[in-house]
C-alpha cells in the first residue's frame, strides 16, 4: 500500500466547479440571447405604437428609448441579435455536417463570441456617425 496515489487522482466532473467548454458556453449563450431579445423587441414595439397613439405616449416611450436604460437595452439587444444570428448561421452549417469536430467547434465558438462584439461595435459606430 506504500505507493498508492492518494492526492493526484482524476476527479469526476463536479457541477459546482466544472468549467464549461467554450462550445457549451456559446451554446447556452445562444439560448439566453434569443430569449433576452424580448426586452429589445418590447421596447421597440412600445415606441412604435406610442408614436401613433398620442404625443404624450411617444414622449414617454422616446424618453425611455433615449435614456441610459434605453441605450443599455438597445445596445444589449444589438449584441444579442448579432450573437444569436452568428450562432444561427453556425447551426445551419452544423445541419449541413460542417464544423462539428471538437477543434472546429472551439474555433467557431470564438468566432461567434468575438464576431458578435465586433459587429456590435460597428453597429454603434454606424449609429453615432450615421
Amino acid at each position: 500500500m506504500a505507493d498508492v496515489n492518494r492526492g493526484n487522482r482524476p476527479l469526476s466532473p463536479h457541477l459546482q466547479v466544472y468549467r464549461l467548454p467554450i462550445a457549451a458556453i456559446a451554446s447556452i449563450m445562444t439560448r439566453i440571447t434569443g430569449h433576452a431579445l424580448v426586452a429589445g423587441i418590447v421596447l421597440l414595439v412600445w415606441w412604435l405604437v406610442a408614436a401613433v397613439a398620442s404625443p404624450g405616449a411617444f414622449a414617454a416611450a422616446d424618453w425611455v428609448m433615449r435614456s441610459w436604460i434605453g441605450f443599455i437595452v438597445m445596445t444589449g439587444s444589438a449584441w444579442a441579435l448579432w450573437f444569436h444570428a452568428l450562432s444561427g448561421v453556425r447551426h445551419l452549417f452544423y445541419d449541413a455536417g460542417y464544423g462539428l469536430e471538437i477543434d472546429e467547434a472551439k474555433r467557431n465558438s470564438w468566432v461567434i463570441i468575438v464576431g458578435s462584439v465586433v459587429m456590435t461595435l460597428i453597429s454603434l459606430i454606424l449609429f453615432f456617425i450615421g
Partner: peptide
C-alpha cells in the same frame, strides 16, 4: 400580441 401591435403601428 407583439406582431399585432407592430403591424397596427406600421
Amino acid at each position: 400580441a407583439v406582431i399585432a401591435a407592430a403591424l397596427f403601428a406600421l
